[in-house]
Design a protein around this nucleic acid. Structure first.
Lengths: 346, 346
DNA sequence: TTGTACGCGTTATCAT
DNA sequence: ATGATAACGCGTACAA
């Protein structure tokens, strides 16, 4: 039992081999998991020696030799945005299952592709969930690791894993309509992000299908303040011109909307129903608790890992992979209610 | 301009050297940042060649040679816990400033030290912010990278970076007392975590100092449900036995407390004032918005990075480093108010 | 100022 | 079934 810190030279396969009385290359084979081409006796001796000496693989040496790092990077718009919590959990889960380590990084605005290059030195593949990934800013540099988009699509040449946005938006529409609402509103993220437009289009067409009117609509950046500001204009409208129910197609939009309503003295859901998209713990603790459509974020994160791994192996991928299972789920909490305008005609 | 994906062999220093007409070792020196021992002309030719070919350092090769990876790991109790948002931002900031990449990992219960070993293969140092790090479970394995605790202390042999917990708790106490409250309560995290006990002790002694009584106190796990359950018992107490104001010494405690109060039909802050510790965006959007003491989390994260780097360099560290600047700051929002019991005696 | 030579730890290939 | 060897890309001590 050597004292750590001190002179503690690294234990290498040479040491293990020496103790087990075999060549280092055999030790490498055995500890690398090769089952054949070695007698049971030596196998055991090698494992014992490795354990005795406390051998651990040297990631850098292995990487250099094999040309692969067993690391994946994921770029998110902002670290600890609750809307990404589920996806990151899925990434973490699937990566661990595939024996990969995950490097997280914030995709700060304007530096999208710089970050891709920097991380490419370290990892085998990249999962890009940043809103920068809209393909409108810059081209992809040459020296970049295999990259897949998550929860977004549209960067030329990069395959994407997306969720059932259209179905989720339709569920939100049907929920409001089934509550008797006929004058609807919709608040989405920036139209430059296709995820937002897919949600918007699906909501609009489902509303039309059921004969509901969409009397207000806006697109805002994905932060609470921007949403609140846009919603403030809506809640200031006279009652007859306002929607009685709004679909807020992102978590930040839901929060901004509810805040604006409260500030204007409107009660949610009595005066205005709000249904969100995406879920998080915070949706339960606000008041009223948010009725929302939960997307299969964990599955999406896992699917992203599996597919970036395919990409790394050189397999061909379809341009867009939609995760449809588990299906989006309507979580009814407190922010939606029947359309009172219909029953109490005042 | 080579097509990516295709046969694209890696660009090495040999290629760069060849194009610049020098030995690869010179290219290594120049691109490694060595300023002397080379003429200006060759310097330029090498940079040009590197740029032209799109050379990027090979992290694994460099690591193997230098015995260092330029990567740091940080272990948090749960990914995307908003209470860690600030600290992680600080870690990310300082790491980037020191040209290090950050690997995030969840410190799942009971696997604390396993995770340390696994990550040690990849990184130069570890920042351990998991609540597992209480030193009561297991001993530190020998083959572990230099490790520093963050927002916790007490694991034998590991230096710790902590925040101004005592001062923060005192500020909370003084705030409630200045509002006229004399019967106080306190809800902290598990006593096995020294951060919780430091906050508790400071609150208790500050209350005593000002002659306020602490009529209720509890310690719970760091999740909303546990806090809510404990608080439910308190709000069920008759009015005369209840505190009129409670210090919830963690974000999850604040939320659980407010939920329990609302469920019991109590109004916050009219019937019960709540002051929290730690801040996050979610504290603004709940209702009432949480009055809380903001801790210097970003600075703490940065300090953790700087000190783990010192540890890696072999420097000696004091067992505990308290970050005192910026000072904790009381953010008065809506969850505290004057003690009405005193004015309206009913 | 520039070049040579070697080794970091691992693993794939080839020989025994 | 086992062993010897070379090479991954880089950085550095040393020689020229």
């Amino acid at each position: 039992m050597t004292k750590p810190g001190a002179g503690a030279r690294r234990v290498t396969l040479r040491d293990v081999g020496a103790l087990a009385g075999v060549d280092p290359s055999i030790a490498s084979r055995v500890l690398g998991g090769e089952m054949n081409r070695v007698t049971e006796g030596t196998r055991e001796r090698i494992f014992e020696a490795a354990k005795e000496l406390g051998w651990r693989p040297h990631a850098a040496a292995r990487s250099l030799r094999k040309g692969t790092t067993s690391m994946l990077a994921v770029i998110v718009p902002s670290l600890y945005n609750p809307a990404y919590s589920g996806m990151m959990k899925g990434v973490q889960l699937a990566a661990a299952a595939e024996d990969h380590v995950v490097v997280f990084s914030e995709g700060t605005a304007g530096e999208g592709t710089r970050e891709l290059e920097r991380l490419s030195e370290y990892v085998d593949g990249i999962i890009w969930a940043s809103s920068q990934a809209d393909g409108h800013d810059e081209a992809l540099p040459a020296s970049v690791a295999p990259t897949i988009l998550l929860n977004r699509q549209g960067f030329p040449g990069l395959p994407a894993v997306v969720g059932p946005d259209a179905e989720g938006a339709r569920m939100a529409a049907r929920h409001l309509i089934s509550l008797g609402h006929t004058r609807l509103g919709v608040l989405t993220g920036p139209t430059s992000i296709d995820t937002a437009t897919r949600r918007l289009d699906a909501f609009l067409s489902e509303a039309r299908l059921y004969g509901a009117q969409v009397v207000w609509q806006a697109s805002v950046e994905l932060d609470i303040d921007a949403a609140q500001q846009a919603a403030a204009a809506m809640v200031a409208l006279p009652r007859s011109e306002r929607p009685t129910a709004v679909f807020a197609a992102a978590l930040s939009a839901s929060f901004g909307l509810i805040n604006a309503a409260r500030q204007a003295g409107l009660e949610v859901p009595a005066d205005l129903s709000v249904v969100g998209l995406d879920d998080a713990e915070v949706a339960e603790i606000i008041s009223p608790p948010l009725t929302t459509v939960r997307m299969p974020h964990v599955a999406m994160g896992m699917e992203a890992v599996r597919n970036v791994l395919r990409l790394i192996r050189g397999e061909d991928l379809p341009p867009t992979i939609e995760v449809t299972s588990p299906s989006p789920e309507l979580i009814v909490r407190g922010s939606t209610s029947n359309n009172l305008d219909r029953t109490v005609e005042r």
